[in-house]
């Protein structure tokens, strides 16, 4: 018995290291489990609170710049709204909220990361503001990510700059669909894959959301094609896309609630069950 105690005392540093390493590995591997959710929710509350205070002071100092950016964005939106109303004569119908499938809420970014393999953004709206998991998040110029977790007053967003995450996208004005993902190198570039070479596409074409998932509404701009390679073998293009949104400088975002999302998911589930 004595020798066991001696070994434990002699090797206490190694034993402590192995024990804590085990905890560290478990902590890492529980990335999508209940434990991770609990820990990350706690992290969101703490870091959200701290970063909100810092952000409040920072945003006070850059009020003029923010106002100018918001004014420019508002004027573009007003202009687009008027064009739609004029073109489709929907002035009376557009005021009826029942006709709108999507509800848009604004939020302020309190923490933004873009230099890691898997980037997370924290915003200052949570369940008390009607924010729920899996809602889509867009910025002034295009998509930003999807709500991952929520606390009462904060939410974490999986940024589109997140490895292992891909988005259904299409080329504007054409029928070509593909899968958009981030390779981890540059926060301003993404890769569009699975676009068949039977489609005619060119550098400068705009990429937008495809609308084939319940996350993002169809037609939200993402970026423009800056590089295009036609492979010698295989039937798919290699496409590099420059993002329209500058994800390294985010201040305000908009959360889109798809009111018919649950209906869409139920139908999709039933269809999948039916084909088995």
């Amino acid at each position: 018995m004595q020798w066991i105690l001696n070994i434990i005392i002699q090797k206490r540093n190694l034993l402590l290291f192995l024990f804590l390493l085990g905890i560290g590995i478990v902590f890492s591997s529980y990335r999508s489990s209940y434990h991770q959710s609990k820990l990350q929710r706690f992290g969101i509350i703490i870091s959200g609170g701290i970063f909100k205070s810092i952000n409040n002071s920072k945003s006070y100092l850059s009020l003029t710049e923010s106002n100018q950016s918001l004014l420019a964005e508002n004027s573009t939106l007003h202009q687009e709204l008027l064009q739609y109303k004029q073109a489709e004569n929907l002035i009376s119908e557009s005021t009826n909220p029942e006709l709108n499938n999507y509800l848009v809420r604004s939020a302020t970014v309190v923490k933004n990361s873009y230099a890691k393999a898997r980037n997370i953004i924290i915003i200052d709206k949570g369940t008390s503001d009607g924010i729920l998991k899996d809602m889509s998040v867009v910025g002034p110029n295009g998509i930003i990510g999807i709500i991952k977790q929520t606390s009462a007053h904060f939410s974490s967003v999986i940024s589109i700059l997140y490895q292992d995450f891909s988005i259904n996208a299409k080329i504007q004005g054409k029928g070509a669909f593909g899968s958009l993902s981030w390779e981890g190198y540059d926060p301003t570039r993404m890769v569009l894959s699975d676009v068949s070479i039977i489609n005619t596409i060119a550098v400068g074409d705009t990429i937008e959301t495809g609308g084939m998932s319940a996350y993002f509404p169809k037609g939200i701009p993402i970026g423009t094609i800056i590089d295009l390679e036609t492979p010698t073998s295989g039937g798919y293009y290699n496409i590099e896309v420059a993002l329209l949104n500058n994800l390294t400088d985010l201040k305000h975002v908009y959360i889109i609630e798809n009111k018919k999302r649950s209906e869409f998911i139920d139908l999709q589930k039933k269809s999948e069950d039916g084909t088995r």
Partner: peptide
């Protein structure tokens, strides 16, 4: 890790 929302 908690403060940076990273995975460990």
């Amino acid at each position: 890790d908690i403060m940076q929302s990273s995975s460990g």
